[in-house]
């Protein structure tokens, strides 16, 4: 498989997951049998690859988002699995911690990368042992704190970078992207809204929290 075909495969795969994420959100609110969920997801994933006027749905998503990070793709894959199978994979507390970490990095990263000063952290992603070392420390800290999902998604991103599976040759693009940052913000916002004084937890959310504890 050529590098171009490999990056197209992973790039379009990630964009398909972004679309499936939004399409399967409804399953959180509507009771649908598991077999129907899987059937819907399979048809939707296939339909996203069918060209319409020269471009497929996944390619239209890619036109706007570019290749999403492997971190986001892995999380979306776990999320979709959860929505389709009805089995819990991701723990709310873990997602909250991970969202906090993503937002903290994004808030420090994007202003500088988009020209706030002469320092460009994005340039480090092309070739910097310092960035590799920083990422290793973060991963070991996550392992120590038993944040195993974070460990998995970060190491998947790093492994993808070594194997050049996306168009980018920059490590940052395998770990972080604006869609991931936005979803992290939405998740944290929703958790804060739930904890707002006077708000009671929705029954489903409370049940999940109870099951998680």
């Amino acid at each position: 498989m050529t590098a171009h075909a490999l990056s197209a495969c992973f790039g379009l795969g990630g964009c398909t997951l972004v679309a499936l994420f939004f399409l399967t959100l409804a399953f959180r609110f509507v009771a649908v049998p598991v077999w129907a969920r899987w059937g819907f997801a399979a048809v939707a994933a296939a339909a996203l690859q069918v060209p319409l006027d020269g471009l497929s749905g996944a390619e239209y998503v890619r036109s706007w988002t570019g290749d999403v990070s492997l971190t986001l793709a892995a999380l979306l894959a776990l999320w979709c699995w959860e929505q389709l199978s009805g089995r819990r994979v991701l723990e709310a507390r873990s997602l909250t911690r991970m969202s906090g970490a993503v937002l903290a990095v994004a808030v420090c990263f994007y202003p500088f990368a988009l020209g706030w000063s002469m320092f460009d952290p994005y340039a480090l992603g092309y070739s910097s042992h310092a960035l590799f070392a920083g990422l290793l420390l973060l991963t070991l800290a996550a392992w120590y704190a038993e944040e195993h999902v974070l460990v998995l998604v970060v190491t998947l991103g790093a492994a993808g970078f070594v194997l050049d599976v996306l168009e980018s040759r920059n490590l940052w693009d395998y770990l972080l992207d604006p869609v991931l940052s936005l979803l992290a913000l939405v998740w944290l916002g929703s958790r804060l809204a739930l904890r707002w004084p006077g708000r009671s937890k929705p029954a489903a959310g409370a049940a999940r929290e109870a099951a998680a504890s």
Partner: peptide
């Protein structure tokens, strides 16, 4: 056992990153 396997996976990934993650002439 799971945690040990994860640690081994981390070691493997970062060894590969350190060895192959820097293209020739990039630095």
């Amino acid at each position: 056992r799971v945690r040990a396997l994860l640690l081994l996976w981390i070691a493997l990934v970062f060894a590969a990153l350190w060895t192959y993650g820097m293209p020739a002439g990039a630095a």
